[in-house]
Simulated scan of single mutants.
Amino acid sequence: MANGLRFKTARDLFVACPAVARDMRALPTEQRSIEFCRDLLAGPIPEEAITFCAYLLPDRAAVWWAHECLGHLSELLDKTDQELLALVRDWVSEPDSPRHRAAVSEAAATPPATPGAWIALAAEWRDNGFGVAGSVVGAAAPTAFQRHPAAHAVNAGVLAGLARVALADRFAVLSAFVEMGLQLAEIEAQRQSADAY
């Protein structure tokens, strides 16, 4: 299934999404994306595996993945974050619904200082392609250089949630999040492959 990933190798991802190089220190290789991500997890900065997953997944899938990750941390999130995640859940199920789009757009007006706010912002930026200047009230629109702002926001949201996990449990939670992201990447690859027929 890894052959069907939208970025077959780590280098493919870095070439298509140059913004990822600003979010992580690891250098790309010709290694298959799934293997590269697992090596990041086993490396000196395992959080970079989260970053890689955020860019590896298509934007809508990345937003869903972030929602699921943060859903596992609900006891560490405040009421506002939980409400934002509920809006994101509804948006993912019907992204073209004007009601859900409006709700996410309004939620994205919250400055992205919490995990849920980052994920709402990712959904808003995904809805606006590469982030139309002026479309986001509470946060600056992404710069022209940052061509994948939804992935950047997903990364920030998941890492902000992970930072709330006790140190003793953090690597186990991080590993579970990465495995969930890689499984979703493989499912997306299968779905896109089936759609091509």
Score class of each variant (00 low, 15 high):
D127N: 13
V178M: 03
A133E: 05
M180S: 09
D127L: 13
G129R: 08
D169A: 06
L174F: 03
R126D: 07
M180F: 07
G134Q: 02
L184N: 04
S135E: 02
D169H: 15
A176P: 01
V132G: 05
V173M: 04
W125F: 13
A151C: 10
E124K: 11
V178I: 11
A150T: 04
A168V: 14
A150I: 12
L174A: 06
V178C: 01
S175Y: 01
A139T: 03
G134R: 08
L167A: 15
V132Y: 01
F130R: 15
L184H: 13
P142Y: 01
F130K: 11
A133M: 09
E124S: 06
F145K: 11
A156F: 04
G161C: 09
A160V: 02
S175H: 13
L174V: 00
L184A: 00
F177P: 04
S175N: 12
A163W: 11
G138E: 10
D127A: 12
V136P: 02
A151T: 06
A163K: 08
V136Q: 02
L167F: 10
S175V: 05
H148V: 07
S135T: 09
G131L: 09
A123G: 14
V158K: 08
V165S: 09
A141S: 14
G134T: 04
P142T: 03
A139I: 00
E179M: 11
N128H: 12
R126S: 06
G134K: 00
A185Y: 01
R126P: 00
D127Y: 03
G157V: 00
P149F: 03
F145S: 14
F130G: 13
V137W: 14
G181V: 03
G161H: 05
A150Y: 07
L162T: 02
A153C: 09
N155H: 04
L182Y: 09
W125G: 02
A133K: 10
D169R: 13
A122H: 01
V173C: 11
A156N: 09
F145I: 06
E179P: 07
E124M: 07
A133P: 02
G129I: 07
L162D: 01
L174N: 00
A144R: 11
R170T: 08
V173D: 06
V136M: 12
S175Q: 15
D127K: 03
V132E: 12
A185W: 10
V154P: 00
A168Y: 05
A150K: 01
V136I: 13
G131A: 03
F130A: 09
A141N: 07
H148Q: 03
M180R: 14
V137H: 12
M180E: 07
R147M: 08
V158W: 10
P149E: 05
G129F: 06
L184K: 15
A123Q: 09
L182P: 03
P149S: 10
L159G: 02
F171I: 08
A133V: 12
A123E: 01
A141I: 05
A172C: 07
M180Y: 06
S175A: 15
G161R: 09
A150V: 11
M180P: 00
A156C: 09
L162W: 05
H148P: 04
S135A: 12
V132H: 08
Q146V: 13
A172D: 14
A153F: 05
A153V: 03
G129K: 04
V154I: 08
L182W: 06
A166V: 15
A141V: 04
A168S: 14
W125M: 07
A176W: 07
Q183W: 10
G138I: 10
